[in-house]
């Protein structure tokens, strides 16, 4: 590039706003609601039920395992392959349970979404605009 040095320009409004350096008050934009409120409410209720169930299960696993270890000191003395049972429960057994609960929740939530999808809405994740995959 051989020309002169570039100069930065903007609209007068932008120039003044930038010089002030503080965000001004913005006009509120309308917040779009769901296309079908009645259907959206049904989805909401179903998802809330699933969420409550999952949180209850999570509490059961966390407080249940720790409560069990607290209530049954005998678990410390039982060993499996030389490792105290209570240690095994704590260090390894909880993670698969947590994964299972989460996976189960996601499946339930996605099924609800598929079941209660507005008929006009596109299926799958993508937005409704054209995808270019596999056109050539």
């Amino acid at each position: 590039m051989t020309g002169t040095r570039r100069v930065r320009v903007s609209s007068p409004q932008t120039r003044i706003a930038l010089a002030r350096g503080v965000r001004g008050v913005r006009r509120p934009l309308p917040l779009p609601g769901p296309a079908d409120p009645a259907l959206a409410r049904r989805v909401f209720v179903a998802q809330r039920r699933a969420a409550v169930r999952t949180v209850a299960l999570l509490a059961l696993v966390l407080f249940g395992t720790s409560g069990l270890i607290a209530a049954l000191p005998v678990l410390d003395r039982l060993t499996v392959g030389g490792v105290p049972l209570s240690w095994l429960v704590l260090a390894t057994a909880t993670y698969p349970l947590l994964l299972l609960i989460a996976a189960w929740h996601v499946r339930a939530a996605e099924r609800t979404e598929d079941r209660l999808r507005p008929p006009s809405a596109p299926t799958g994740d993508g937005p409704g605009r054209p995808a270019r995959d596999g056109r050539r």
Partner: peptide, 18 residues
């Protein structure tokens, strides 16, 4: 102490669900 680790992980169950 490993309860910390269990909690750190369990947090993501709550994140996924909520």
């Amino acid at each position: 102490t490993m309860w910390y680790a269990v909690g750190f992980t369990a947090g993501y169950v709550a994140v996924a669900a909520l």
